[in-house]
């Protein structure tokens, strides 16, 4: 299960990027920002981060391939392969984020920037949608249940909101992060495939049932809950004029990230590959 770490990293990084971009685009499109609003500075630091996350994710998934240099044809099966589509929309998303950074450097107007951001959100949303679709194959009953999209969307929003708080800017990010992490946790407790209270166990199949001891799921939930708790403490204790990150934030982020990573590993562990259960002489 641990050998799936490139996929876990890809998923976490990709979801964080989508969440962070969506929030930043929403803020930029909805808030009336005056030209000298310090918010602008904050906004412009997030886009390189989004792009950076996506580049790292792309490189990880590229080099985890056994034959990366045959991958030039990886978009060839867009019509039927959800993996082709996921990569396409990821590339489109990256392109739009990079394009937006270029436009900022060229001092494009707010109208143009907002259009690009909307397009980027769309691309990011489709990226997330096709990422979810990847796992929702009818032949994978363990993954094709409600818990998968709930978990992926929940993670995106939670990680995106938490990423906002790392950069600071407005106090409102903190309760927003509290909200989305809380929702993600509730969704997880109820719907996580294999471990959620309302999740479906699939029927017997030609794959062994690979549910790890529930200790690990509870550990993931627990760490994230502690992170959430600390976030609430911070929310209650910093002033409304807070603009910069608080050192305690680092611990929150670490805990929440750890919880997300553990639970993502458990997710991947549910569907084993033949080599995982076969003895290798």
């Amino acid at each position: 299960m641990l050998k799936e770490w490139p996929l876990v990293a890809f998923t976490i990084l990709g979801q964080t990027a989508v969440g962070l971009f969506t929030f930043s685009a929403t803020i930029f499109c909805l808030l009336p920002l005056t030209p000298d609003d310090p918010m602008r500075e904050w906004l412009w630091t997030w886009q390189p981060v989004v792009l950076g996350l996506l580049i790292v994710a792309a490189l990880l998934s590229f080099f985890h391939l056994r034959h990366p240099f045959r991958a030039r044809r990886v978009l060839a099966n867009f019509r039927t392969s959800r993996l082709s589509r996921e990569i396409f929309f990821m590339l489109a998303f990256m392109f739009l984020v990079a394009g937006e950074m270029l436009l900022v450097a060229m001092n494009a107007t707010v109208g143009v920037l907002r259009s690009v951001q909307v397009a980027g959100c769309l691309a990011g949303g489709l990226f997330l949608y096709s990422m979810i679709g990847l796992y929702m194959l009818v032949t994978l009953p363990f993954w094709s249940q409600a818990g998968t999209p709930i978990s992926f969307i929940g993670s995106s929003l939670a990680l995106g909101a938490v990423a906002l708080t790392v950069f600071g800017g407005r106090f409102i990010w903190i309760p927003a992060a509290v909200l989305f992490v809380f929702l993600d946790l509730v969704g997880s407790v109820l719907f996580t495939p294999g471990y959620g209270l309302l999740s479906r166990r699939p029927a017997a199949s030609l794959r062994p049932t690979a549910i790890a001891p529930s200790f690990f799921h509870l550990l993931g939930l627990g760490l994230e809950s502690v992170g959430l708790f600390l976030l609430i403490i911070i929310a209650l204790s910093v002033s409304r004029e807070w603009e910069g990150p608080v050192p305690l934030m680092a611990i929150c982020v670490a805990l929440i990230l750890a919880g997300q990573v553990i639970r993502r590993f458990l997710f991947y562990g549910l569907i084993q590959r033949p080599g995982d259960w076969t003895i290798q002489s």
Binding site: R66, H67, P68, R70, A71, R73, V74, N77, S81, L83
Partner: peptide
């Protein structure tokens, strides 16, 4: 074959489904 991103898997007229290992990128999807 529907899932393979590089179309390394194809189906003959007589129904045999074939993996072209020369095209496979090892994504294991």
């Amino acid at each position: 074959g529907l899932a393979c991103p590089v179309k390394a898997i194809s189906k003959r007229e007589d129904g045999i489904v074939f993996v072209d290992t020369g095209a496979c990128i090892g994504c294991r999807y």
